[in-house]
Amino acid sequence: MGEIDRIAEILHKHRQDPRYLLAILLDIQESENYISIEAMRTVAEHLGISESRVFAVVTFYRALSQKKKGRRIIRVCTGTACHLRGSAAVLQELEKQLAIKTGGVTEDGEYTLETVNCVGACALAPVVTSGENSFGRMGPSKAAELLAEGAFA
C-alpha cells in the first residue's frame, strides 16, 4: 500500500469535517513520519478548506513535521524536574553519540532526536523516551549505554 492509499484510509476513518483537521494530520504524521505537500493538498481538498489553513496548522504544531523523521524518535525530557537533574547533559551526549543536532535525523534514517517539555514521569528525572517506553534516572553515560545496547530501537 502506497502513501496515497494509506492517506485515503486515514481520511476515511475520520468524519469529513474541518474540525478533524488536526486529528487527520496527526494520523498521517504517525503513518508517514512526515506530512508531504501532496498529503496537505489531499487533506485540504477532502475537507473543503484552503491549503493555506492546512499549511498553517502543519507549521504551528510541533507534533507535525514537513521533514521525514527517523523510524524511532528519541525524546529527552527537558521539563523543569529533568532540567534540574541534568537533562541538558543527557541531550548533549545523545547528540554526540548520534552525531546529529536536536531535531535532526541520523544518516541511516533510524533515529530522530527531540526534546519534550514534560512526559509526566518527573519522579524519575531525567527521563528519555523512545516510542512508548520511558527510561528514568538517565545520565550521559547511561543514555549512551542504552543507545549502544539498542534499547531505544
Partner: peptide
C-alpha cells in the same frame, strides 16, 4: 492539555 513542565497530576 497539561503542559506545565514538572506537572503530571492530570495525566495521572
Amino acid at each position: 492539555d497539561e503542559g506545565d513542565p514538572g506537572a503530571f497530576m492530570d495525566r495521572a
